[in-house]
Amino acid sequence: MKKIEIGHGGGGRLTRDLIQEVFLKHLKGDHLHALEDAATLSLKCDQIAMTTDSYVVHPLFFPGGNIGTLAICGTVNDLAVSGAIPQYISLGLILEEGLPLDTLEQIIMSISEAARDAGVQIVTGDTKVVEKGKGDGIYINTTGIGSIVRRMSAENIESGDVIICTGTLGDHGTAIALAREEFPVESELTSDCAALNKMLEPLFKIDGIRWMRDPTRGGAATVMVELADASGLGIQLFEDSIPLRNDVRFITEMLGFDPLYLANEGKAIIAVSESCSVEVLRMLHNNPLGVNACVIGKVTSDFKGVRLRTVIGGERSLIMAEEETLPRIC
């Protein structure tokens, strides 16, 4: 079995071979094949959105995806919820000496597939290798650029706006927890890892769209607290409206996790004017990734912060995640 050697990051012949035999074999596009030091790009827009994210998920492969799919979808989603059309992505790899080449190739194939599905191009990349024992197989950094078509901001939200969630919460966090095999539970649950740009782009045309966010680390609760803090308004969430898969409900209860604080990798939370909420839900329901979209709360000026109306009709506050429930989730 061929493995990554220190020389694969040396910039010499081994690096060149790796680029030809693995990266260029699977990653198509003129920019990358030119093998220049920098990609020359053009964007026709007034404003661009740029984002960067590093991926250190453990384990590298999990039900529903791997570190490669995550590295594309995560960065695409950060651009999409910023009102941008994602276009170009960079790919930085830190490989650990000894990583099987087959594993790397599988991850690169997933990257290629995820990029194609999301309609983004990988235009530049870099590979470094660290000694055995000083990494964990592979770490990935992706930076993404997109053209902004719709400006959104927490300052836009108003009392009376509704909060929409595009699907079930906590799937990714729970799937990763199970994939670590620390818990003796078997389940068919998979990560929700998916690129949301194709689902969200049609919504940019709707006037009443105020704000969007993908609730990754810290989960939906943390994102809601951020919105409440940034807007100076209150957010009332309804526990009995929050979409949860039955297996996620059961497993999180057993493991003592709160699904509102678990990471999602294929969901968005959207603040929208009440008058546009029906249209937004209708459009989301037309996309396979949005079939479970529903209203989970509303914006209010009655209080500040986030409060959850519980299933028994009581109320409690939600705070920002204090400590990471599960480290290395993405």
């Binding site: 959850l308 109306r309 519980t310 299933v311 028994i312 009709g313 009581g314 109320e315 409690r316």
Partner: peptide
């Protein structure tokens, strides 16, 4: 009691 918000009702 706290997570169900029992005191509030």
């Amino acid at each position: 009691i706290a997570f169900s918000g029992i005191r509030s009702i």
